[in-house]
Amino acid sequence: MTAIVIENLGRSFVTTTGTIRRTQKTVTALDNVSLTVEPGELFGLLGPNGAGKTTLTRILSTVLLPSSGRAEVLGLDVVRDAKQLRPRIGMVYGGERGLYWRLSGRDNIQYFADLYLVPPEVSRKRIPELLELVGLKDRAEERVEGYSRGMKQRLHIARGLINDPDVLFLDEPTIGLDPIAARELRTVIADLHNAGKTIFLTSHYMYEVDALCQRVAVVNKGQIVMMDTPAALKQLVANLEVVEVECLSVSSEAINRLRDHPRVEAVHVDNRDQVQVLQIQAPGGVKYVPEFLHLLDGANIQKVVTRQPTLEDAYVKLLGKDAISV
């Protein structure tokens, strides 16, 4: 049986503005999304902020209803069979919210063990195992308010696993974590996948889905732009070279001049503190570096490097201007 089946799923939200003369606006968060995830697969949903990743996760984890289409998890309809589905899935949202900060890590997990009706004899054994898995065994009795962001995130994972779910939804689990904490969390996710769990992971970090996922769907503005293996996504940019130009004051006119260059396929601007890094994708890009620099005259160029394309570049190519800085 397929673990997740999504057919023509749509979701829109109505927002209102104004106090006395209220005007309504409908925002489409998901537009005709279809995909499947096989049992034991680690599937990634990649996209910029506002692409619809969290909306899809919330629908699949039964806390949000779709506006159109249908979705099944473990053969159960997420709308009609929510009651039967909930004990069999786990969900982990990114960020620090969603925990009882004034209680200890152990109390948090114990409470959700009770809510999921995990038999006491099972939870007595499982809770220490989960605390060990996420590296919180020695801090389990401390209040969550004293935990670092990474520790809270790992506690989220432990909580999401308390019912030993068949399918685990991870919504941007490494968001806001420092590189070491994010790497530790990715190790936990990889271990869960190796243990046979079906995992649905959303992220806007390309290297994360590249390192973890067997297949990935790139989503933008509520629609799936492409769905394949990370290797196949990289093939999209296999013939390209990437020229990275670090500058202090590049104008939008200069960027447009670059985009109009006949050999340039995409230009992505990444704002990093005081500098802007232009990632210029072009076949045989190295040969055209002098031309690119000429077009960027006055941009106060600090550094120029060329490199082979990565999954991130495939993402930039697919999303164009909608790709965000990562």
Partner: peptide, 12 residues
């Protein structure tokens, strides 16, 4: 606190 959706999503 962001726990309401986790409570609603629980089987209880």
């Amino acid at each position: 606190g962001g726990t309401l959706s986790a409570l609603i999503a629980a089987p209880t």
